[in-house]
Structure formats: structure tokens, C-alpha cells
Design a protein around this nucleic acid. Structure first.
Lengths: 208, 208
DNA sequence: CCTACCGATCGGTAGG
DNA sequence: CCTACCGATCGGTAGG
């Protein structure tokens, strides 16, 4: 029971569209056209436009969990896993399985001012993500891979900084060095949090 | 010659509207209503919607230059001025003279994917800003306030990170600690760039 | 899942 | 700066 092939097709097209024009930029008409249905056809699968947008956001989350989080959880808890999560995050922000940028970052800018179920869902999802990263920082601290006085929330705040600056520089400035700079910033964050880089399995890829 | 009072009124209202619903969220009708004109009234002052949006973006830049950059330039070149610029930037991102968030950040997410004069202007303005910050980092380096191996572009990249993470956390998560975290991140950036914090005139405000 | 349609609003213009 | 209007599109629905 694939839930409905058409529904999946709609969400795929919606995800692609959202990454290009933003969630709010999606129009019932444009979405219908991109999936070769009439507008009424869409309403056979969804109740309202908001219902569609929410489903698209959920689909994006599913993909990120599948492609980014799940594989990272196979890494050893602590620094190793934290690094894998950062890499997955960066990879996703580069260009998900999508033409435009990261749907979460662009929709955050659109939604931060508009109360409603869409915003609520995004906040919930992002809080979960920040929480997961924070717990991994704690684990690394407990394992002695990070120094005892590292503040997990501050650490996660700065991880967000690297990713957001990457997204901004890569997409607006079309700056090819953005990825290297983001990795470098993360490396520096690890270093000043008491992580001994000389014990890393792989330290390459950085260098301003 | 105040250029036309009405034009100013339109831009003021447009700026406020843009910060709430985004640049692209502005509608000729909604803008006309918010300034108590008819749509045709707007076209007595502007040629097209894009013309209006561009003028709004220009008005935002003027304000930032006036309120943020200009006063900072009175500070001593180097660290002092860099700190003033960071503070002004953070202050502006908090809530400009505007209800919504920073127009440049939100419009960057909207425009990064849409070629055109609007995007071109934003890129130009942001590149100028990054350049100005970069030159100030260089000055600080030459004055011996930052260590010789600091990379100005990497430094500016990380300043962007702090501001963007602040904007994201404050607006989406409604996180009250966001400002403190951003200042802390900047302080850490200075510290690991060889700046001796003990010589600062004012070091307060940080503390995770 | 389509045809055919709803009232509202979109960006914009003619003419004054 | 307004009235009056343009064709196109918006989100959505009735009825099948």
C-alpha cells in the first residue's frame, strides 16, 4: 500500500517547487501544472493549501531523517557522530535532493512571522534537531572528547551559525569557498571546545 | 525639496510591510491600502511593482547606513570600530525600526533563487558590507589588535554566522538568550583571532 | 480525478 | 492622484 502514488508524486513535485520559490511561493495552480493534474485533482488528495504545504514540509523532514540523520546514527556516539551529523546537515543545505536551497532555512524566514500550524511544525522539528545535536555534544563531553565546561546550547548555536552562513554565502554570493569556510569554522569550534584534532581519523578538507 | 512626501510615506509603509510579510509578500493592493491610496495612486510615483520593491530595499539600505554604519565610523579604526559595526548589525537584526525581522536576511532567502535587478542590488549591497567589515579586520590586524594570520574573509564569514544564528534563534525559536549567545560567539571569535580581551574597554554582556 | 464554475485579488492601464 | 476597467490567476467547490 504505497499510500497513493499520486500523493507521493504531488509531494515530490511540491518539494522541488518549494525549494525554488519557497513554501509560500507555491500556488495550487502551479503545483497542479507541475504534476499534470487539475487543481481539483489536488483536492482529491488534500483538504486545503495549508494541508498540502504541511505535507510537503513533513516529506522534507522524512527525507532529511532518512538521508541525513539515520546514517549518522550508525557512527560512534560523541564526536564521531557529531561530525557525521554536521556533514549530513551541510550536505543537505548544499542542495538537498532538490534544485533550490534548504527548505527549512528558507521557510524559516517566511514563517517566523506567521503564526499557524505550519510555523508550529517547523519550530517543533527544528527544536528536535537542536535537541539531538545538544545531546550529542553532552555525550562527547562525558566521553572526554570535549572539555567539561562546554555549553551544549552555545555549541549548537554556533553550529547553526556555520550552516546558515554557508547557505547565505553559497546561495546569495555564489561563493565557492563557502563550504570550506563552514567546515573550517566547525573545526575551530571543536578545537576551542577542547577537542584534540590530532586524534581525528580525518582532518582534511579545511584550510582557509 | 523632500522629493515628495507621499513617496516617502509609501516607502515607510513598504518597509514596515516588507519586514512583516517579506518583500515578495508585498502586494500593490495591500501597500496602497496601508498608505491610504488607490493602486493607481502608487503608479503616480513608481513605474512598476519591481520598481517599488527596489526603492524599498534602497530605503532600508539608507537607514542602515544612517543608523548603523555612520555612527560606527566615528570609532577608532580597528577593533573598536569592528565591535561597533557588529553591535550596530546585531541591533538592526533585532528589530530595525521595523516590526518584522531584518529585511536583508529575509529577502536574501527569497531572492537567492530569482535572478533580476532586485537580487543584483541585494548582492551588491551585501558584498559592500562584507567588504567594509573585511577591511576593518585588516586594519585591526595591521594595528596588531588581531594576530597576523587572521583571514579577513573567514572572519567576516563567522560574523555572518553569529548574526544569522541570532536572527534564526530569536525569531523562530523566540529564544531570549540568542543575543547573549551571538555576542559570546563574537567575543570568542576575537579571542581566538589573537585579541587580548583584558585590554577591552567594555567586556561585559557575555556569559553563557 | 475532471469540467465548469465561484468571488476575490493580482499587476497594471486609460483617461482624466 | 482618482474612477473604472483589463485579462489572468488566486484558493476553493459542486457535481459527477
Amino acid at each position: 500500500m504505497p499510500a497513493s502514488d499520486t500523493r507521493e508524486r504531488i509531494l515530490d513535485a511540491g518539494l522541488a517547487l518549494a525549494s525554488e520559490v519557497g513554501l509560500q511561493g507555491i500556488t495550487i495552480g502551479s503545483l497542479a501544472r507541475s504534476v499534470d493534474l487539475t487543481k481539483a485533482g489536488l483536492y482529491a488528495h488534500f483538504d486545503s493549501k495549508d494541508d498540502i504545504l504541511l505535507a510537503i514540509l513533513r516529506a522534507a523532514v522524512e527525507r532529511f531523517v532518512e538521508d541525513g540523520i539515520r546514517p549518522s546514527l550508525r557512527e560512534t556516539p560523541g564526536i564521531g557522530r557529531l561530525r557525521a551529523l554536521f556533514d549530513a546537515w551541510l550536505e543537505w543545505s548544499k542542495a538537498p535532493p532538490l534544485p533550490g536551497g534548504c527548505v527549512f532555512i528558507s521557510s524559516a524566514a517566511e514563517l517566523d512571522d506567521r503564526p499557524g500550524p505550519l510555523r508550529d511544525y517547523l519550530v517543533e522539528v527544528q527544536a528536535d534537531w537542536a535537541g539531538l545535536l545538544g545531546r550529542e555534544v553532552k555525550t562527547a563531553r562525558e566521553r572526554g572528547e570535549l572539555s567539561g565546561d562546554v555549553d551544549p546550547r552555545q555549541f549548537v548555536f554556533e553550529m547553526y551559525g556555520s550552516i546558515l552562513a554557508f547557505h547565505y554565502h553559497a546561495r546569495l554570493f555564489e561563493d565557492r569557498t563557502a563550504e570550506t569556510r563552514a567546515r573550517w569554522a566547525f573545526q575551530e569550534l571543536l578545537a576551542r571546545s577542547g577537542h584534540d584534532a590530532s586524534t581525528d581519523p580525518k582532518t582534511g578538507g579545511a584550510g582557509a
